[in-house]
Design a binder for these strands. Structure first.
Lengths: 239, 239
DNA sequence: CCGGTGAATATTGCATGCAACATAGGGTCA
DNA sequence: TGACCCTATGTTGCATGCAATATTCACCGG
């Protein structure tokens, strides 16, 4: 077991627990900590250079978010998402993104339209340049996040953040389709068109269908390429 | 300030933090702790007869659930839900209960139908007997919870639990309509009919409309009778 | 009578100690 | 060689200590 630490030391300002949480979440979401990896509170505390209290708190928040699971007397481990999990995740996410798009359509103004267009164009560049998967996921997350922000419903935002966090985690293990970014971008554009035309029903439908298609493509990808067997914390690179 | 404790001592078995969380949540949801009440970790720890660590953890979970808010350097206080909060809450809840009903319809079997009918009949007795509000809320919560259970989607369940928790909290402050229980029961029956007839669309619609009507009735109640003034736990009235 | 100032108070958040406990691994015995 | 036991290690979860800090209340001056 290499001493290669998956998390970085904490600066040491205020709210160590918060910083530890962000660091851990980042490590999980960028796949530096992989599903199945152990989250030992003492070990992480040592690596971050802080005591166990804030780390313990951070790990528990991760568990609460569904990004880690608690194995009795074995500590916490980064959550493993199976195909069925993802399916159920996306069924829920579809109706919530639909609602978000609907609400956002009602509250859209010129500023927000510009921001959305901006994001779409940047996403376009990323896709055109064939940049890395990580970057694409970031754009995808950012786009949906902005829609939520426009929708301006904190309860919806909170629920969707949790759902999307788990989905984000799943993408690392499951998403292997090379033209997925292009398709996603296309569907993002369709949502944009519906929203800017003021058609709430169409926006709702477009967002729901986007997530539904994502779910279907994910299922197909998994079905075709059953995933090279990879142990918890082994060394494989993302293809 | 009366020494009247709002929370009970903890038995002392295993997982004190969990027990403390349940105790606190119960106190909040049954209105023994009211919106605005302070949640002092040292005080609660003393009342429960345990140390601060598990209590701190419990309070943080409450905050994460939206049942409490963190006021800087003043400790945590039981969350205050205003009318707008409730409206936004129910907008989200409507689509999620709709999805739950839809999924439940697809997975319904004879056993679950019997359980649902059982609950409805008990609810009927409660309404007929004109029992207390608390009991009615319990029935309402139980009914929706059972639908979720049948729907069998853990992510949907988790999200809805959080949403319903906040809604539950809101009801104490806002629900003053005497015939609300009767109307709710009636709408529960309608959802039941749609589900047992196997019509997923109708079930979805019925559940969504139920929550929407709930939201509208709540808004009307609040608009007509602005609430008998009752302050946090002491003197102030809600502005 | 009222406003301002200072000290006492109570809070949080982090660090650390410690007992209980399950697991893993090695060594022993049949 | 294979199964079993027993110890060593790692973990959790709770208790407690402690510094930093904002609030509150009383008291004093105007």
């Amino acid at each position: 077991m290499p001493t290669e630490r998956a998390v970085n030391p904490i600066a040491g300002g205020s709210l160590l627990a918060e910083q530890a949480y962000e660091e851990l979440k980042g490590a999980v979401l960028t796949n530096r900590l992989r599903p199945g990896d152990a989250l030992s509170v003492p070990a992480l505390a040592a690596q971050m250079g802080i005591s166990r209290s804030p780390v313990r708190e951070a790990v528990q928040r991760l568990i609460h978010d569904g990004l880690a699971t608690h194995v009795p007397h074995r500590g916490a481990v980064v959550a493993t998402v199976d195909v069925e999990d993802v399916r159920q995740l996306y069924v829920v996410r579809a109706v919530m993104e639909g609602l978000a798009a609907r609400l956002a359509t009602e509250r859209l103004d010129a500023t927000k339209v510009a921001e959305l267009r901006e994001l779409l164009e940047e996403h376009e560049r990323v896709v055109a340049a064939g940049e890395d998967e990580q970057r694409h996921i970031e754009m995808d997350v950012a786009y949906h996040r902005l829609i939520r922000e426009v929708a301006d419903n904190p309860h919806l935002t909170a629920a969707l953040d949790t759902i999307q966090g788990k989905a984000h985690l799943a993408l690392h293990s499951l998403w292997r389709s090379p033209d997925a970014p292009r398709l996603a971008l296309e569907e993002h554009r369709r949502i944009f068109e519906a929203m800017t035309s003021g058609d709430t029903d169409a926006a709702d439908r477009a967002a729901r269908e986007h997530i539904d298609r994502l779910r279907i493509r994910l299922a197909q990808t998994v079905a075709s390429g059953p995933e090279p067997g990879e142990g918890p914390s082994s060394v494989r690179a993302v293809p």
